[in-house]
């Protein structure tokens, strides 16, 4: 093999935390670390999230995946004592120090939570358009159109279109979660963060949402935290593997395409995890 080529290969191999450049980056993380009252919860996260791909954050519990995810829409602003170091760029803008307000950021980066949480006093329709309403959009035509589009994207339109005014609590768990996905999509964000969105759902509902992902990623870039690595293997294009270190702080071990993570990872710890040796 060509010496020069081998050097290039080695260069790539020896810097596992810098992914080779692929399409446009929707979000870029550079040296991101989150600490609470001085105690580091997760650190050293550097990777690029490519547009229109599903990137999953995997690792055993306590490795800081959710903490990292919540830094991406500045949810830690709500926690006193929380500090986010490093840089997080959304299409080139630093979300913490750049020229973007928190409210604007959150219209461009949406979030779906672990347990379905539709607003209990609102109907299906009102839940779906709640984001738009919050942001000052009142025109019924826009709201109606957005509701239909987002509910269709969440594969919920067919089953609810006749009962949009019904209270959201009437839906099953899986339907409620898809409503939450629709709610987040209604604002047409660039990125959708999902924090273990199927862990509270039954297998059938889980499957439905996983099937959604391939369609979803055509519209948004998805970053999903999952403790179920089979799920990660099924749905994601890229994987970031995090692990809790001895000082109880999570760190990024490896960031690669899903295929590589599961078949041929660089770090032995990644292999141990994917083979189920711990977790």
């Amino acid at each position: 093999m060509d010496q020069e080529f081998m050097a290039q290969v080695e260069a790539v191999v020896e810097t596992p935390n810098e992914a080779p450049v692929r399409g446009t980056a929707a979000m870029q993380l550079k040296g991101v670390a989150v600490s609470f009252h001085g105690r580091t919860a997760v650190r050293d996260c550097t990777f690029d999230v490519t547009k229109n791909r599903v990137t999953s954050l995997i690792g055993p519990s306590g490795s800081g995946k959710t903490t990292l995810l919540r830094a991406l829409n500045r949810l830690h602003d709500l926690t006193p004592g929380a500090k986010v170091a490093g840089q997080i760029l959304l299409e080139g803008t630093d979300i913490y120090r750049g020229d973007i307000t928190v409210t604007e950021l959150r219209t461009r980066v949406g979030m779906v939570f672990q347990r379905p949480n539709p607003f209990p006093t609102m109907s299906i329709y009102e839940n779906a358009v709640s984001g738009l309403r919050f942001n000052g959009i009142k025109k019924k035509s826009i709201l109606d159109e957005a509701a239909e589009a987002s509910l269709k994207s969440a594969a919920l339109w067919d089953s609810v279109q006749g009962r949009l005014k019904v209270a959201a609590s009437n839906l099953s768990g899986g339907e409620q979660q898809r409503l939450c996905i629709a709610r987040a999509l209604a604002m047409d964000p660039e990125v959708l963060l999902m924090d273990e969105p199927t862990s509270a759902l039954d297998p059938i509902a889980t499957l439905k949402i996983e099937e959604l992902m391939t369609e979803l990623k055509k519209r948004v870039t998805v970053i999903i935290v999952t403790h179920n690595m089979q799920q990660a293997a099924r749905i994601s294009d890229d994987c970031a593997f995090l692990l809790m270190g001895e000082d109880r702080a999570g760190e990024l071990i490896e960031f690669e395409t899903t295929e590589k993570i599961f078949n041929n990872p660089i770090d032995p710890r990644t292999l141990d995890y994917t083979l189920g040796r711990f977790g």
């Binding site: 604007e104 000052g136 826009i142 159109e145 957005a146 589009a149 047409d188």
Partner: peptide, 13 residues
């Protein structure tokens, strides 16, 4: 709809 939505929301923010 994205542009329209963003325009309105930016104005009102």
């Amino acid at each position: 709809m994205r542009d329209e939505i963003r325009q309105i929301s930016d104005r009102v923010r």
